[in-house]
């Protein structure tokens, strides 16, 4: 993307989203486009990152905090004097809550020197909101997936107990529940131990 003269309105900012989570990256990209930003690039593959950032010459970089490459992005402002457009982490000293919200949500933003605060804050606010929404969604999906998995495991463990100890379905279930309460573990964990132990003894592979 060749650099032109300084953009005159927010829509002209070149924004780079660095996120290995491609789904989340595309959610952020979509949010930026909805806000009228046309020049949005996404990097999900971290190879040769520095050269690619320099080639894209973004005005704003949005990066997820789980990404070890934050230290690399900060290098753009420190080590190399060859970089003609130094970037700095976006911090609004007048509003400590902004940074706290961003860090807690797991995202941060870097901007080229001299960019006006209010233009960047809107971008960061949007990214924070979408990061939060995405992590809630992922937590929900995760707990649904785990509940399903637990139910399957519990059924298998129940069948194993019924067979090995000659218990009825109800009794097998209550035995597992009592054990879970006594050991302060989830039912799913108890069931998993029973299933893997049984597999070990009978020689079945998971």
């Amino acid at each position: 993307m060749p650099r032109e003269a300084a953009p005159s309105d927010p829509q002209d900012l070149a924004i780079l989203v660095i996120d290995e989570d491609e789904i989340r990256a595309s959610i952020i990209e979509e949010g930026l486009r909805e806000a009228g930003h046309q020049r949005v690039a996404v990097l999900a593959d971290m190879r040769n990152l520095l050269a690619r950032i320099e080639a894209l010459a973004p005005d704003v970089i949005v990066i997820d905090l789980a990404n070890p490459n934050r230290d690399l992005v900060e290098h753009l402002s420190h080590v190399s004097r060859a970089v003609s457009r130094p970037v700095a982490m976006f911090v609004d000293q007048s509003d400590a809550g902004v940074m706290e919200a961003a860090i807690s949500a797991g995202v941060s933003a870097y901007v080229v020197d001299g960019l006006r605060k209010d233009r960047v804050k809107a971008i960061l606010d949007m990214a924070v909101a979408r990061f939060q929404a995405y992590s809630h969604l992922r937590e929900e999906l995760e707990s649904t997936r785990r509940a399903l998995e637990d139910r399957k495991l519990i059924d298998r463990a129940k069948a194993i107990l019924m067979k090995l100890r000659g218990l009825g379905e109800e009794e097998a279930y209550h035995l597992m529940r009592r054990t879970a309460m006594r050991e302060n573990r989830r039912m799913g964990e108890i069931a998993r131990s029973i299933v893997s132990t049984a597999n070990l003894i009978t020689g079945d592979e998971e």
Binding site: N67, P68, D71, E100, S104
Partner: peptide, 15 residues
């Protein structure tokens, strides 16, 4: 943590 930047920021804001 995954980066020194994270360690620095989370120390600074009190995490």
């Amino acid at each position: 943590e995954t980066s020194w930047a994270n360690v620095r920021d989370r120390l600074a804001i009190g995490h």
